[in-house]
Design a protein around this nucleic acid. Sequence first.
DNA 1: ATAACTGCAAATCTTTTGCTTACAG
DNA 2: CTGTAAGCAAAAGATTTGCAGTTAT
Lengths: 130, 130
Amino acid sequence: MTAQRRLLVGIIQDSPRHLDAAALLEIARKQDPDIDRATVYRTLALLKNRGLIDELDLMHIEGEKHYYEAKTNRDHCHMACFRCGAIMEYASSSFEKLKAEMVKQSGFHIRVVRLEVGGFCKRCQKGVTS
Amino acid sequence: MTAQRRLLVGIIQDSPRHLDAAALLEIARKQDPDIDRATVYRTLALLKNRGLIDELDLMHIEGEKHYYEAKTNRDHCHMACFRCGAIMEYASSSFEKLKAEMVKQSGFHIRVVRLEVGGFCKRCQKGVTS
DNA sequence: ATAACTGCAAATCTTTTGCTTACAG
DNA sequence: CTGTAAGCAAAAGATTTGCAGTTAT
C-alpha cells in the first residue's frame, strides 16, 4: 500500500465523525497538498472491496454523499436525527441474532450489512408534531 | 393529489420490482407522455416525506440510483446478491424486536428504517472464492 | 385570488474515466 | 522490467432548481 493510501486509511480510522469523500480529501491535503480527488475515490473503492471500510448513507440526511468508517468488529446501526443531524450508533446482540437468523433461513452469504434509521433523537422529540 | 401523482403512486404500488426514478418515468410516460422527470422527482420527495414510500439503495448494486417501494405494514430487509443482482426480502419478528429494543434503549423516535445486506445468494455461492 | 403543480432547460453535486507520467516490487 | 498508482481534466449519472405558465381550491 502506498503512502497516500496509508494516509487516507489513517484519517478514516482516526476521525471521530463519519467523513465523506470531499471531507476526507480536504483533511488529507493538509498533509499532502498534491493528493487528488480521483485518488481518494479509487482508494475508497479499494478499501470497500477489501472489506476494510464500510460505506454509509446516513439516510441521506445531507445530500447524496456517502460516508465512511473503518470496519469494526461488531456491526452496528446508525440512527440519524432528521432535526439536529446527530448520528448515534447502536450495537446489540439482537442485531447479531437477526443476522444469524437471516443467514440460516435464506442461505444468503452476508458480505456487508447496513442498518440505518432515520427519525428524531430523544432531545429533538419535544416539539415535533408527528 | 393530482392525476399525475396518483399515476406514479399506482405504478409504484403495482410494480413487482423496485423502480428507480428513470424506470418510473419511463413507465409513467406510457400513460401520460407529457410527464416530466422533475415531476417524478418532486412526487417521490413528497411521498417519501409523507412516509408513503420507502427509498432503497440496494447496496448500490447498480450505480448510485435510488429505488422505491410502497410502504408495507411490516419493515423488511433487502438482500442484494453481488453476483446475480437478485434482490430478496426478509421480514421477521426478530427485526421487530430489534427495533423495539433500539427505541427502548436510545429513546430515539424511529421514522424510517433501512436494513440492507450485500453478499451472495444461495445459488451464487458455489464458485465464489471468498 | 391564492397556493400548489407542471414542463422545460439549465445547473449542481458526487463520482468515474481516459490518458500520460511516475513509482514500486 | 512490469504492473500498479497518481494527477489532471473532462465526462458521466442522478437529482435539483429557477422560472413562467397552468391547474386546483
